[in-house]
Amino acid sequence: MPNKDKIVDVPTVNKIARLCRLDIPEANKENLTNDLNNILGFVAQLDEVNTSNVEPLASVTGHKLPLRSDFVNDGNIEDLVLKNAPENSSGFFVVPKVIE
């Protein structure tokens, strides 16, 4: 059984926030850590059930993955695609410089 009380700590919250590009005020971090631990602790109750012989459930509806045929029926909507971009130029999105 995993420790339900302390699954995440503040450094973990910091890491997740960085990965998600979220700016979390210092004052909120303690609360957020508690919230996350509560949520994860709640979900961790599932660990009490033996699921070793149970297939993962992907859908409760029994639907199958729909497939489409390979033809072009979309695109040619640059204006629409760029409409919400804060900046664009000659058909490109323009963003602050990102370079490896």
């Binding site: 390979d70 072009v72 979309d74 695609v81």
Partner: peptide, 27 residues
């Protein structure tokens, strides 16, 4: 070598005008 993309109906061809082959799914 498909005509359209993996999860949308926008063209997968090379060398088009910028953002021409983009559907709202791709965006």
């Amino acid at each position: 070598s498909s005509k359209s993309k993996l999860f949308s109906g926008a063209s997968a061809s090379f060398g088009s005008e910028a953002n021409r082959n983009v559907s709202l799914v791709d965006a």
